[in-house]
Write a protein that binds this DNA or RNA. Structure first.
Lengths: 150, 150
DNA sequence: TTTATAAAGGATATTTTTGTCCTTTATAAA
DNA sequence: TTTATAAAGGACAAAAATATCCTTTATAAA
């Protein structure tokens, strides 16, 4: 019925989050990083990660520089980007807005059997993604409070 | 990048949850329900729903009766089945156990940047699925506190 | 200005999930 | 015992997600 992970986020989103957090951390050290470095350091498929970074570049979350000595950086004012914005670009917002049982119409007025029980979970998730910025996570990494590889 | 819903559960699991809740509610009214009825009432693809119900039958969550006047029921002692058991059969338990960023190894000792922030959300989700049984949800439906269609 | 480098973009391939169709098996009722 | 009915099961199809490859574009440095 299932092969591995019906996870919270899609693979695109997982790679995207890992990538921006890594790039953010490197940016705090004034390092510009290439696609090759990113995919090695976050252990993700390179060409696929390129596509994800293209999306994030188009949406002005990361900045890309072409040519020799090029790579990816996150500009200082973009370090305040919330995780929710990254997720929104890559997975949309159905994690917050969608019905847990997949009903098209499901709200407080005509709720599915799980609607009210999902409210707290969804709010927790939203708050978590809105209260964590690339800057704060990069700081956690720099303080060795977290790792991205493995 | 995405077409519709990176939802909490797979489609199989959404249909499965809707189906067992519906069957549970009908069981409280002493109704045995056919696949056709189930898929009509929960608005799901019939043949696909059949496969999902087969899984749940194999795992002894629903009881199926073949032949004329056959259909699906949930035996009384199975009405205390927790949603977590249904989810476990259809999607596995990676929603609880897996890393939010998709890392293979991620735990309190070497946490990804989101690990600790995910703990609360995951626990909420687990508690919700463990504290709701088919019996309690069927009761909600009978009390018109919830609907499954649309 | 040429060259080398690195991201962008387009086309295509693979895998997984979702979905259908048809035959087989079990069983209740005539 | 025959017949009709409904689930089980196997094979297959379509769609979506994941992943790769190759060409084009931009650019920094020689």
């Amino acid at each position: 019925m299932y092969t591995d992970n019906p996870s919270m986020f899609s693979k695109s989103c997982e790679y995207g989050l890992r990538a921006v957090i890594f790039i953010a951390q490197q940016t705090t050290k004034n390092n510009k990083v290439s696609l090759t470095t990113v995919s090695e350091e976050i252990d993700s498929p390179q060409a696929f990660t390129a596509k994800v970074l293209q999306q994030l570049t188009k949406n002005n979350i990361v900045k890309s520089i072409k040519g020799p000595y090029g790579g990816f950086v996150i500009e200082d004012h973009k370090m305040d980007t919330k995780l929710s914005e990254v997720v929104s670009v890559l997975d949309g917002d159905s994690i917050y807005t969608g019905c847990g049982l997949g009903l098209k119409q499901c709200d407080a007025k005509s709720p599915c059997p799980l609607h009210n029980k999902f409210v707290a979970i969804r709010n927790d998730l939203r708050n978590m993604l809105e209260n964590n910025s690339l800057r704060s996570l990069a700081a956690d990494m720099n303080a060795d409070l977290a790792i991205l590889k493995r």
